[in-house]
Design a binder for these strands. Structure first.
Lengths: 104, 104
DNA sequence: TTGGTGTATCAAAAAATTTTTATGTGAGGT
DNA sequence: ACCTCACATAAAAATTTTTTGATACACCAA
């Protein structure tokens, strides 16, 4: 279906970092503003900004601006897409037989 | 449940590479030997070996040895674990309200 | 045993990601 | 307007991942 390996890889890269996993865990508890996330992370402000950009671009998180604050939350559509993709990537499409391509 | 961010990150890293995604796509069609995978990839033999190691260590692929050949296939348990983990990581646990931690 | 084939491993180089530091920008408040 | 705060962006440095090339190892056949 989706043959763009690069964009699929990008989605998983969003999940492939400890800091971003910590952020997701916090967001599971509901919307949070950047400053609140920062409090509970071991990274600098610009570091968080970088990580949030990765999460936003992957589609699993959305943000809204309010005054000078930015709030982040998990995006249900993006989350669903991620789950679907993992399922798709790991679903075997044949009755799994032994490969005998190299038998003598 | 699982609080080991590092090992979670490792699982997703397995999915975060174009070559490995191509391998998974091939394995969806059933077990394949290394040489068959290699034919359809743009990487060297040692490169494939490296990528397969990453996939094996993530648990989404298993291998079996037969003579001098190695056969790989998707591991249903590992695949299921991956799907579960994505679900867990993206499931919001509260009725999603606005965060007001920074309101004046 | 010897030689060839299929994979794995190691080390170095190359490439990509993450962190850090410095600076920029926009929203409010005074 | 000017200052400050919250966050973004840019560039450089640090770290991690991937690729490459050489070599090692296991298996098989002659």
């Amino acid at each position: 279906m989706d043959s763009d390996y690069q964009s699929q890889a990008r989605l998983f890269k969003a999940f492939s970092d400890e800091t971003r996993l910590r952020v997701l865990e916090m967001l599971r508890g509901g919307e949070k503003c950047a400053c609140k996330l920062l409090e509970n992370l071991d990274c600098g402000q610009s570091g968080l900004s970088y990580h949030m950009k990765v999460l936003l671009e992957s589609g699993i998180v959305t943000s809204r601006q309010e005054g000078k604050w930015t709030y982040y939350r998990i995006c249900p559509e993006g989350a669903f897409a991620a789950v679907s993709l993992v399922k798709q990537l790991t679903t075997v499409t044949v009755d799994s037989d032994r490969c005998d391509c190299c038998e003598p």
